[in-house]
Amino acid sequence: MRVVVAEDVMLTREGITRLLTDAGVDVAAEAGDAASLLRAVRTTQPDVAIIDIRMPPTHTDEGLVAAQQIRAEHPTVGVLILSQYIEPHYAMRLLDEHPERTGYLLKERVFDVTNLIDALRRLADGETVVDPTIVTRLFARKRRPDPLGQLTGREREVLALVAEGLSNRAIAARLFVTERTVEAHVNQIFQKLSLSIGPGSHRRVLAVLAYLRQPG
């Protein structure tokens, strides 16, 4: 697998690069800002670009803008946004335009190399990646009445994995059940929550996140 790493803090950039190299991932290029990232993606056509959300010059959302541009210009290149913010808003903004091959992970999670490699693999497979911390936080949101209360424990588990961006097959593998079972669970959940989006659609991650954030 070939990746490009864009991160303006050299220490972090080198750490990630070393982790990936040690794990056998080919780091095709490193970039310190959005412009050099876009150049690197154009020339190396990696499987995934790993992008820090805050980059020069304004250190606000340059990474997010660059990610959207990459997804628009290079449909085969996945993007993984690294951030220190538990902000569903950023993740949803990213997924809103390009639901496939996009991911949003907390920075500290990438130093757990298995997490990182797993996320990269899923992105390369066309899945979506949403940091579990974000999903956990959304699940913990106080609601009145709580519609999630009508779900069984297993259904909540499945819903959380859907929200993290896993495909049915990946959920089945994670939970050691058949894909058919997962499909049944997903249908059941969507019915209980009156979610209208098709269970197989790539848009379902965004729909679930939006559902979890809706008032009440």
Partner: peptide, 10 residues
């Protein structure tokens, strides 16, 4: 929206 995510009440 984020404030509501983490608020101590609905």
């Amino acid at each position: 929206a984020t404030l509501a995510d983490t608020a101590p009440l609905p």
